[in-house]
């Protein structure tokens, strides 16, 4: 179940548009009236603001004194490709690192756990709940817990390494390990949701094909690879898309666990946007970042619609 507001906006892609026979009654005014409250909220807080972002991105905006703002045209956009640190390109790569980790790692991990936990009795049911629980916990609360887990001197993570005779790691304080550490936390938090999506997918696929494959002498792995997984294709596409979009937007764990550091190693586009807008108050530049982020997300969304349409043919 989606638990962030971002996901709420995303999940519906799961639901197919059904075809209904024509209804004869004239419902125009009523229908418009019924959709109006929702559309009004979207208009005021989503649609107009999106356009407004574009306007702000053309200004050297002074939030302290708007009268001192200057129109600079594409100035903020050319700055995106300038020498600011962390550069737009570097943050893009950091976002890509995180997103790839979440999408590839998350999909593989949740698929594996789903296969492990499918069907089965009360014990496996309890494990399903255990895997899902982290997903309903607030990101603020559990990010704090994981900062403590990753404490190099007294934390659980190094205690586990110690148990296996390995030496401790600086986790969040080393630019090489900070992102893997945030990824570990984020996977812990997000995987429960995608596991359940895969379980839902596994519960409705046909078992007969698998039987047939086994009759033909396929082993478990071949059965999974050639028979089960292909049937989960729409579910996988959904999981990949939702993970991509929510990873691009991830912010809270970076804010609390690393503050974008060390050495910008965890400054993703979302974090950079926040930092430029609400720490350094380079509002116009941040708005330009937002426009780019919007275009990237919209492209992913459209791509997903495309894939969906072609896969359902």
């Amino acid at each position: 179940m989606a638990t962030t507001q971002a996901e709420q906006r995303v999940s519906p892609r799961a639901v197919q548009v059904g075809r209904r026979p024509a209804r004869r009654a004239r419902n125009g005014p009523l229908a418009v009236g019924l959709t109006l409250p929702a559309l009004l909220i979207f208009a005021v807080f989503t649609i107009l603001p999106t356009a407004y972002t574009f306007v702000i991105s053309l200004f050297d905006w002074n939030p302290l004194n708007v009268a001192q703002s200057r129109f600079i045209g594409a100035g903020n956009y050319t700055k995106l490709f300038g020498h600011a640190t962390p550069s737009f390109a570097a943050s893009g790569l950091t976002s890509l690192y995180f997103t790839a980790g979440m999408v590839i790692g998350g999909t593989a991990l949740s698929l594996a756990i789903a296969v492990l936990l499918q069907r089965g009795g009360a014990l496996l049911g309890a494990v399903r709940v255990a895997v899902f629980v982290p997903h309903v916990t607030p990101l603020v609360a559990t990010s704090i817990v994981w900062v403590w887990i990753f404490n190099p001197q007294f934390g659980l993570a190094n205690a586990v390494l110690h148990l296996f005779g390995l030496s401790g790691v600086d986790w969040l304080d080393n630019s090489a390990t900070a992102m893997p550490a945030v990824l570990a936390y984020s996977l812990w938090h997000e995987v429960g949701f995608t596991v359940v999506i895969f379980l839902g997918g596994l519960s409705v696929i046909s078992g007969e094909l698998g039987e047939a494959a086994r009759v033909d002498g396929a082993n478990r792995w071949q059965e999974f690879w050639y028979v089960t997984w292909p049937q989960l294709r729409p579910v996988t596409v959904f999981v990949v898309t939702i993970s991509t979009i929510s990873s691009l937007q991830a912010f809270t764990q970076f804010f609390l666990m690393t503050g974008g550091g060390p050495v910008h190693a965890t400054t993703t586009l979302s974090f950079l946007l926040y930092q430029e807008a609400f720490v350094f108050f380079h509002t116009g530049y941040a708005a330009a970042l937002a426009v780019v982020l919007f275009v990237v997300t919209a492209l992913f969304t459209l791509l997903q619609f495309r894939t969906r349409r072609s896969s359902s043919r």
Binding site: A84, T85, D170, D173, N174, S175, G261, P262, V263, H264
Partner: peptide, 24 residues
């Protein structure tokens, strides 16, 4: 602060890290 993280974790030499910070 960023230069310190970079130099102290061995990512850059002190001089290189400081040069970057200076440029910014």
């Amino acid at each position: 602060a960023v230069a310190m993280q970079s130099a102290l974790t061995g990512k850059q030499t002190p001089a290189a890290a400081l040069a970057d910070a200076q440029k910014q």
